[in-house]
């Protein structure tokens, strides 16, 4: 069973639709038992970091997430919340990655919105992808480069486009909105 973590800020529908296209019927849930028993958990995110953290703590989901053993994928804000700290609302986040999340302070327009290319390490999440594939980003905050960085992109400067440590994976871009490349990444996650 694939679980999508439901919370107040995320638009879960497009991730669910993307899984449907891969012929997977996910369960959308915030129930700790269901999350623990899932084969994989996806945590999509649109919204604001401190608000999302408050929600997770109130529901006890912060501890539930940190104790999960199965492959866990955070998308966009979902990835940022796995990092150690976010400048958005000056929030301590889950700390599963060392990376810190900062606001873009660059000459380019913010948010970073649109298709940008990945520079990837050799990693199972990126199996079968073309060289430097373009994926779709929408974000104003970014994760710094860190030991767990497995892909980077450049907007003003380099930042972490994907992270991996133990059973936790995170992508800053939206695989559910990144056409064929995104579908391949989601399939790779399902195949882990």
């Amino acid at each position: 069973m694939i679980a999508i973590l439901q919370y107040n800020a995320g638009n879960t529908r497009s991730v669910r639709n993307a899984l449907h296209r891969l012929e997977v019927e996910p369960v959308i849930t915030a129930d700790p038992e269901q999350l623990r028993s899932a084969d994989k958990v996806i945590f999509p995110g649109v919204g604001e970091a401190s608000t999302a953290m408050t929600y997770l703590r109130e529901k006890g989901l912060d501890k539930v997430i940190c104790d999960l053993q199965q492959p866990f994928l955070g998308i966009c804000l979902g990835m940022q919340l796995l990092c150690s700290h976010s400048e958005e609302g000056d929030t301590t986040t889950l700390g599963l990655f060392e990376a810190k999340v900062k606001r873009f302070r660059i000459e380019e327009k913010v948010p970073h919105m649109g298709w940008n290319n990945l520079i990837m390490k050799d990693h199972p999440l990126f199996a079968g992808l073309p060289d430097q594939p373009d994926v779709y980003f929408v974000h104003s905050y970014f994760a710094e480069l860190a030991p767990e960085t497995i892909a980077t992109a450049t907007y003003g400067h380099e930042f972490s486009a994907a992270l991996h440590r133990n059973n936790f994976y995170g992508v800053q871009f939206h695989p559910e909105k990144s056409a064929q490349v995104g579908a391949q990444i989601l399939q790779n996650f399902l195949d882990l």
Partner: peptide, 8 residues
């Protein structure tokens, strides 16, 4: 549309 399309 949302069910079928995988671009924004």
């Amino acid at each position: 549309i949302s069910a079928e399309l995988s671009i924004p």
